[in-house]
Design a protein around this nucleic acid. Structure first.
Lengths: 202, 202
DNA sequence: AGATAAACACACCGGTCGGTATACTTACAG
DNA sequence: CTGTAAGTATACCGACCGGTGTGTTTATCT
């Protein structure tokens, strides 16, 4: 259904000028913490210690900067997850490693999933960032699918779908739902679904 | 742990002048479909066929209007769910009815959960709407808890938490994840967790 | 030496943002 | 008859929005 190389491939970021990198870093902090529409280009320029002119020279428009923000975030997130996965044995342990990586990721990103948040603002439009978001979310499900196939489960597609639901649910419940036990609850439930003697999972 | 009257109580909306109602209706459409920060007060006034003056006379500020939008939405959503629940027998069937009600709700609200979306824009601030959102999400978990208690499950708190994860996960995966099978997948998984002969659930 | 790319400072543009002020009309209650 | 609440119309406010134009400095590459 899918080759490992597809699931684990992480695109590399194109080289960037120093100012462009500072701009993107500043934009990341501001977009994530305050929301995309709530942040003006002027405040990004100020936070990056540069000028609006440079922003528009490097990224073309605010929309271009938004797309770059989402792309970089996607790459960094995938790198973390893949790093954690490679340390584990295929199947059961790898699947749980995804939940652990998410938990770790969210310790430093308290405002929840940047892609879900971005989709909340861009979802109704034809903004080019939307496809980056959808692609990112599809990648997670495909990753679970790859893991479940490698783990030899009977119905990897179904199981991966279930894990995806738990995964997204834990992020949202922990943030918008303000329930701190969401992560451990999701991990425990995933563990149950993955248990080799559980007739529901395989 | 909780009395039925708490879980099923739906606050009633305060009476509203005709213009205020039109304003709130217009704001609902615009906030939901375009996002809160992306919508200006002028466009709300125009869509409602009234003036900014009236908006500020009735709601005090844009923030006041945002809170009213979230409150009304919360009441309408709860009313639908409770209506569907009351038709079912306690426990198993009621829990699934929540998933069905959500599915039905999302047929008319294609942009996903208005509360999750609003939280994406307001979550980092001290906006008064945040507590309305958190309260709404807590209500869902409490509702599941009430249902699981009534169903006589061994660990209703744990089971309700699991159902909450699936519930939120299905909404997000269906919208931001663009995976149309999320709803049925969540329902099937919930059914498995609720199965009386499943040792994991009780 | 000359060309090129990158970054800088800074002024400027029309439009929209949330919010206010003034004045006039309508309807209903005492 | 009179006061009060509700609504409409319209003009206005300073601040900020995304985006552009002009000109200068600096470093690197040929």
């Amino acid at each position: 259904m899918m080759s490992p190389v597809v699931a684990l491939h992480v695109p590399v970021e194109a080289p960037m000028t120093p100012a462009a990198d500072r701009i993107l870093t500043a934009a990341t902090t501001l977009f994530y913490n305050r929301g995309i529409h709530a942040v003006g280009v002027d405040s990004i320029a100020e936070a990056a210690g540069t000028t609006k002119k440079t922003i528009y020279d490097r990224f073309g428009s605010k929309n271009g900067l938004i797309v770059a923000y989402l792309r970089r975030r996607s790459m960094q997130w995938r790198s973390l997850v893949i790093g954690r996965i490679e340390e584990q044995s295929p199947g059961h342990d790898q699947a749980l490693a995804v939940f652990d990586a998410t938990d770790e990721w969210m310790d430093s990103w308290v405002r929840g999933c940047g892609f879900i948040n971005a989709y909340a603002e861009l979802g109704g439009t034809e903004h080019p960032g939307v496809e980056v978001i959808v692609e990112e979310k599809s990648w997670v499900r495909e990753l679970f699918e790859y893991i479940c196939i490698a783990g030899g489960y009977d119905d990897p597609h179904f199981l991966a779908g279930q894990l995806t639901l738990l995964h997204e649910g834990s992020i949202v419940t922990r943030t918008a739902g303000a329930q701190s036990d969401a992560s451990s609850l999701a991990r425990r439930t995933a563990e149950a679904l993955l248990a080799p003697d559980d007739r529901m999972a395989r």
